[in-house]
Structure formats: structure tokens, C-alpha cells
Design a protein around this nucleic acid. Structure first.
Lengths: 211, 211
DNA sequence: TGAAACACTGCATATTCATGCAGTACTAAC
DNA sequence: GTTAGTACTGCATGAATATGCAGTGTTTCA
């Protein structure tokens, strides 16, 4: 593993960027650029991409976008480490790309050194990204003590039961309460969560990560 | 901002580790260790912690655990950047800590240089963590093409409507279909998701990240 | 040309849910 | 010692949901 070449493919529609990257990467002794393509379609057609260890993928491509491309690759060649490269660093793009299967996310202003480091990092099982992007990803995990959505123990317990699909009757049996007792708490849950039915409550609970 | 000191607190129950860190950090010209405590309780009592920019928190503490500590801090002093330091690097701990509000996660085998770098990184809005931990976090975001839970466009559309709490009638109006047409798809969704009611379907859809 | 498979529509019925109103028991505060 | 709040129980009713069965029209494959 130590001496093996890292096989790389580049998918980027801007010719100058693409060739610039290729030149930089080819200069590294442990890198081998298998191919550089201007679209996902041409990259997938070539077949070279299937042999690569790391793919550097632009996000804004005509035809199949980079996000669609990474999703496709993730399904067909899950071992390939895709690094997204983009001029955009808005939350939506970052999340869509990472959720679709990218392991890292770089903005295009990275230096050649950072680029090379990121590729090695991705190859070795890391997740290269700028500290700012890392922070955004982490922030998305944080529990939101945002508003006054404070459910107590009993309510959380019941909301969890709601999410499992149990009927009021079953819930009542599970938690040793009357059906009307269950009802009582559910009314309160609905009010606190500002919803008026079961599935909306479950959706909100899951989105707010309180269950 | 450039010349300001980074104010740091350490919460770590192992005396040698705690003093070792303090010595390392005190040696840096841009760091100022406000206090070093052996428990969350003593740290919070002192009040110094409220003035700090970065807190280095052990995860395995007696009394209030590091995770409870970071959750408490996040609520009361949300601007403080907490870095979790631990000998454990299992998924459960990583996630609990990051979800509770930690911005970074280090294992205790970090070098002094890495530690200092991590603190500066956290202070500047980054999220210091080892590449392996970063990858685990990213992997958790990845869509799971795990099993045969393939809902088609229409079904996804309807499942999303279910999650908003709309009634069949409303959904039918929204997507220009008869109520029985909505019913038809919902039956199929239930079968594919192996559930038999609305909220269970919503819960499963959200957990599998397909909506 | 015929059989499936798919995407609906239509209807019937038992179950479950949402919600309003009334009452009890316990605790803490004034 | 009354008042207020919390945690229930109980009941009633209309609305929504789950599910079974019987169609129709279109596309696809043999």
C-alpha cells in the first residue's frame, strides 16, 4: 500500500482548470492521472473511471451534474473516493454532495499543495475539507436548543412510540397508562410542536433530532 | 483578532494528562490557559469557563460526563468552542459528542503540535478532527442504497406530503390525483417500506434519508 | 394478439385518530 | 386554605385512515 500509485480521474468542464489540475497532479510521484473528462457522461463512457481510487469532480457540470455523478458512482463503484470541487460553498450544495456520497469537499481556490494533500487524505480514508466546511457539517449535527420545543420524558417516550407506528391502545399498554392518558400527552405534544396530527409530529421530532 | 489571546479551559480528570496539556498550551504565545479542572462540576462552579474561547473536554469524566458537559455549555455559553478529547473513538461517542455541541473531536494520542493546531482551528471557526473521524461523520450523511427500498418519484412525492401532515384529500388536490389514487400509492409505499401506517412510514422515510 | 404489469378510480367498512368538554388527585405557592 | 398547575381518566363524535375487492385504460413483452 505504501508504494502504490493513487489513480485519479478528473471530471471538470472548464478546460483550463482541468488541464491545470492534471499538470499539478501528474507532477507528483505517487499520483497517476488516468483520465480527465469534461462531463460525467464522457467519464463514465470511458470506463477508466472504474479503475480510479480518487475522483476529483466538479459540481457544476452541464448534463449530469456532479452531484448526480457522485450518486451514480457511489452505487456502481462504492469504493471510489469522490472529492467534490466547486466554486460554491453554500450549505445546500455541500450537503447534497456529501449526502450523495462524496467523501470530501473543496473549493476551487485550494492551493496545489492542499489539493495533493486532500487527495492523499481521501485515499487513506480521510475526509478532506476546509475547516469552515467541516464546521458547517458539524453544526448540522448539533441539537437545536433553538426554540421552546421542550418535551418532557413522558412526551418523548410517547413521541417515540408514535414514530414506531403503534396505536394509542398499544402505546397505552406499553407504558402502563390509559388510552386517554396517552391522548392527553399527545395533545400536549401537538401543541408544543405546533402540529395537528401524528405523522407531522413524527416528522418534526425527527427533523429536530429530539427522537 | 489577529493579536488576541485564545483563552482556554481544560476539563480532564487525569492529573498528569491535565497538567501535561496545560504545560504544552501555556508554552504557546497566543494561548492563555484560564483554568484546568478535574470535573465539569468544578469547571462550571469556577465561572472562568464562561470567559474562555475554547474548552478542551475529556469525554469520560466521573459525575457529569463530557457529553453532558458540552450539552450544558452549548445551552448556556453557545459561543464557546468545545473540543472533545478522548481515548474512545467509537461511533456512538463521536456522534453523541458532536450532536451535543462539540465542534471538534480528538483522540488523546494527538501530538502537541496537532493539539495546538486544533485549538487554533476551533477558535477560527473550523472543526478539528482526525481524518478518520471526519470520514465517519461524512459516512453517516451518505444515502444508504442499502436494501431494496426504491420508491419512485410519485411515491416519494406522496411520502413527503405524508410527512407534512396533509390529509389524503389535501394531497390529492396538491398532486392532481383522486383520493383513491393517493390511497393506491400509499398502499404501495407501505408495502415497500414494510409498514402499515402513516407515521411509521414517515419515520422510516426520514431515518433512511429518502425524504 | 394476448398476457402481464402498472397507474390509477371507485366503493365499502372497521379501526384509529383528533378534539372538545368534564372530572379527579396530587403538589406547590400564596 | 384557596388557587393554580400538572398528570391523568372518561366519554362522545366527526374526520381520517387502513385495507379488501372490483374495476378501467395504457404500455410492454412474448
Amino acid at each position: 500500500m505504501g508504494e502504490s500509485l493513487i489513480k485519479i480521474c478528473i471530471v471538470e468542464d472548464n478546460k483550463y482548470m482541468r488541464e491545470g489540475w492534471q499538470t499539478i497532479l501528474d507532477f507528483e510521484p505517487d499520483f497517476c492521472v488516468l483520465g480527465a473528462y469534461n462531463s460525467c457522461e464522457s467519464a463514465f463512457e470511458s470506463g477508466e473511471i472504474n479503475r480510479s481510487n480518487v475522483v476529483l469532480m466538479d459540481i457544476e457540470l452541464s448534463g449530469m451534474t456532479g452531484i448526480e455523478g457522485v450518486r451514480y458512482l457511489k452505487i456502481h463503484q462504492p469504493k471510489i473516493n469522490v472529492i467534490m470541487a466547486t466554486v460554491f460553498d453554500d450549505d445546500r450544495n455541500i450537503f447534497d454532495a456529501l449526502c450523495a456520497g462524496a467523501v470530501g469537499y473543496l473549493t476551487k481556490k485550494v492551493s496545489p499543495e492542499e489539493l495533493c494533500h486532500a487527495i492523499r487524505d481521501a485515499y487513506r480514508g480521510g475526509s478532506p475539507m476546509t475547516p469552515q466546511i467541516a464546521r458547517r457539517v458539524i453544526s448540522s449535527l448539533h441539537e437545536s436548543p433553538d426554540d421552546e420545543t421542550k418535551l418532557n420524558e413522558r412526551e418523548l417516550q410517547i413521541l417515540n412510540q408514535l414514530a414506531t407506528g403503534n396505536s394509542y391502545k398499544t402505546i397505552a399498554e406499553e407504558i402502563f397508562l390509559s388510552v386517554d392518558g396517552v391522548r392527553y400527552h399527545i395533545r400536549n405534544i401537538y401543541e408544543k410542536l405546533q402540529v395537528n396530527n401524528r405523522s407531522e409530529a413524527v416528522a418534526k421530532g425527527l427533523k429536530k433530532r429530539i427522537i
